[in-house]
């Protein structure tokens, strides 16, 4: 399993735990703040489910660059960084919005949204060319060989 997939899955597991803890907090009346509900759903659906989808697809889909390292897997690692930085910022900043007047939290929430969307775009850049049939792969390989 490539390093990037391990990173996605292990980070995803972390978010999975966080989401279930938030789920417990939502059910306890004294802890149940309205801000926790969107965090519970997003850590579960983006932090866990989407994250394992990203990690496993980068590993299993055809056309993977088997060389390890940031440069070799540039779009994959950028996706990992953007998505997780965005999620962590959301987790930290969103609960502060109703309780603090500081513009700093608003900037963090805005950055979180931008980072997550950017992570989605870098994922598309990595995966779009890799979604192909066997025939397309054969043709691509043939084209590559002819070029050399």
């Amino acid at each position: 399993m490539p390093r990037i997939t391990r990173a996605f899955i292990k980070t995803g597991m972390g978010f999975f735990l966080v989401s279930l803890l938030l789920g417990i907090a939502v059910e306890i009346e004294s802890l149940s703040l309205p801000v926790l509900m969107p965090l519970f759903w997003h850590t579960l659906m983006v932090g866990w489910i989407t994250q394992i989808i990203f990690g496993v697809s980068m590993w299993m889909f055809p056309g993977r660059n088997k060389e390890e390292g940031f440069r070799a897997q540039l779009w994959g690692w950028l996706t990992y960084i953007f998505l997780n930085a965005g999620l962590v910022l959301r987790l930290v900043a969103e609960p502060m919005l109703p309780y603090s007047e500081l513009a700093f939290w608003n900037v963090l929430v805005l950055s979180s949204a931008v980072l997550q969307v950017t992570g989605g775009i870098t994922y598309l850049i990595e995966m779009w060319p890799r979604i192909m049939s066997k025939e397309q792969r054969r043709r691509k390989r043939k084209k590559k060989r002819n070029k050399q």
Binding site: R90, A93, E94, L97, W105, N106, V107, L108, V109, L110, S112, A113, Q116
Partner: peptide, 8 residues
């Protein structure tokens, strides 16, 4: 929607 929370 997330942006809207910070900047309506």
């Amino acid at each position: 929607m997330l942006v809207h929370k910070a900047y309506p």
